[in-house]
């Protein structure tokens, strides 16, 4: 039996009286390009954070390629690359230093060939020696993507990767992500740009109030409301209001 890239079983999480995740079950197969959609506060980022070990669930189990994210956190984290939603950076270092440091955290030395390739694909080569403070918001966002890829993770989670990135750079980013997916990487994407999810994702889950309320292939979701083919945005609105 093939081990799924991600398996989420009965995961619940409360922050005080707020229920962020309410018994979420989800399986994502290896090599999928998967979309996780929902309004603000639906639980997408909490679910991703639980997968990354940043949030400890009250109940349930999460696995990355069969490795439990709590019991075998080292195994799970080596296989996972996460692009966080917030535009965070360490102001003391240059882009290349940032990526070398991130490689080292994953136990990798002498990673410059791969770092150069990532920098090239994300159009950051010219900024390799620039301090992180000197970069524009879009460039900082691309460095976040680069940081998630330094250890060549088979499972990549992108939490709103194109927020604040201009159109041209966004297209370049998607070309690179698509290529990674074609090379066998599993991609999990959250975004508020539903046209991106529609064009990139083969399967989509929609979350609301900590629960998955729709889960299907993108094609099936677009046909969900009768014979009329809707845009993903129209489907999303109807599902959320149902």
């Amino acid at each position: 039996m093939t081990v799924p890239a991600i398996r989420v079983s009965g995961v619940a999480k409360h922050f005080g009286s707020v229920c962020a995740l309410d018994g979420v079950d989800l399986e994502i197969a290896g090599g999928e390009f998967f979309g996780l959609l929902g309004p603000n506060g639906a639980g997408k980022t909490t679910l991703i954070s639980a997968l990354a070990g940043l949030v400890r669930p009250d109940a349930g189990r999460l696995e990355v390629m069969g490795h439990d994210v709590q019991a075998d956190y080292r195994g799970a984290r080596r296989l996972l690359g996460v692009v966080p939603q917030e535009l965070v950076f360490d102001p003391f270092f240059s882009v290349r230093e940032t990526l070398r440091i991130q490689s080292g955290y994953f136990g990798i030395r002498g990673n410059d060939d791969w770092i150069d390739e990532i920098l090239h694909n994300l159009d950051l080569t010219a900024k390799a020696d620039a301090n992180m403070r000197a970069l524009s918001g879009g460039m900082k966002r691309r460095v976040l993507v680069a940081q998630a890829l330094v250890h060549r993770p088979p499972v990549i989670v992108l939490d709103e990767p194109t927020a604040g990135v201009d159109v041209e750079l966004r297209q370049g980013l998607w070309r690179f992500i698509r290529r990674l997916n074609e090379d066998g990487h599993t991609i999990v994407l959250t975004t508020h740009y539903l046209e991106e999810a529609e064009s990139e994702c083969a399967r989509i889950a929609m979350m609301k109030a900590g629960r998955i309320i729709a889960l299907d292939t993108t094609a099936n979701l677009l046909q969900r409301f009768g014979s009329e083919t809707l845009s993903l945005e129209e489907v999303f609105v109807r599902v959320m209001n149902a």
Binding site: A52, G53, L54, Y73, R74, G75, R77, R78, L80, V82, P84, E86, V88, F89, D90, P91, I101, Q102, Y105, F106, G107, Q147, H151
Partner: peptide, 11 residues
């Protein structure tokens, strides 16, 4: 700043 995440995500 939130950059603690870079230390918390790795193994």
């Amino acid at each position: 700043t939130g950059s603690i995440v870079f230390v918390l995500l790795p193994p």
